[in-house]
Design a protein around this nucleic acid. Sequence first.
DNA 1: AAAGCACCCTGTACGC
DNA 2: TGCGTACAGGGTGCTT
Length: 271
Amino acid sequence: MPELPEVETVARGLDQSLEGRTFTGVTVRWPRTVARPEPAQLEQQIIGRRVQSVGRRGKYVVVELDQGYLLIHLKMSGRLLVVAAGEPLEGHVHVFFDLDDGRQLRFHDVRKFGRVYLVDEPEQITAGLGPEPLDDDFTLDDFSRLLARRSGRLKSLLMNQQFLAGLGNIYADESLFAARLHPLRGADSLTPDEKARLYDAIRSVLGQAVDSRGTTLDDRGYVDASGRAGAFQAQIAVYGRRGQACLVCGTPVERIVIGGRSSHFCPRCQT
DNA sequence: AAAGCACCCTGTACGC
DNA sequence: TGCGTACAGGGTGCTT
């Protein structure tokens, strides 16, 4: 599932390959994928727009145009691929954009949860997101202050994009393992040392995952804009490892459901 | 404020 | 072999 490291990797690839390109057409094959404007208006609004840069906010890919912004959320299964227009159109391509150099930006999404937005300002979509955990100016003090106002379970909190932007199920579980904190711990129960451990763990796990170009769990999983898989799966400690030995102590990894989402943790290491 | 759940979707795993 | 069904997952919206 694309989370912050995967979206960051996609955005970096798109920034390289799309900068300076102009959109010359768009085809919508599954209208619900286009959240706004109305699919019929997308064409007239995006043709002629030029890409200035591609970045990321939370789990959104943010394409800065000479006028307006194209935002894409990959949700569960979305892929953004840049290919020559002559390449056969794969199944599950719900929207594709023609570029002025004979290539296409294709939005491929088996689950159809992903969404595309064309807006004047990115904040129209991203205003509710919490801070970026990897920003230089996101400090331990900031994190402690955010935690102080919360009382829910750590796992649910880390998954809440309004609390912190970019963590999903994989990196929330991995961060809690790295911090040696149980996913059901109350956010208001942490000692100063535990808060520091969690802050460090989130930044360390996300940073390493970005360096590894994200996590690709199987051959249908995440790939970047050039179709390349990530490598962080080799460093996964608990996610998806139910029943397997904890890499630190050998205790079987447990899986429980929190807030309707699976949570993986070591019952001995995480307290 | 937080928890629980249905919803959106489809491929896959599983039971019979 | 083939069918039906449960499940996974991020985010939103609704109810408790």
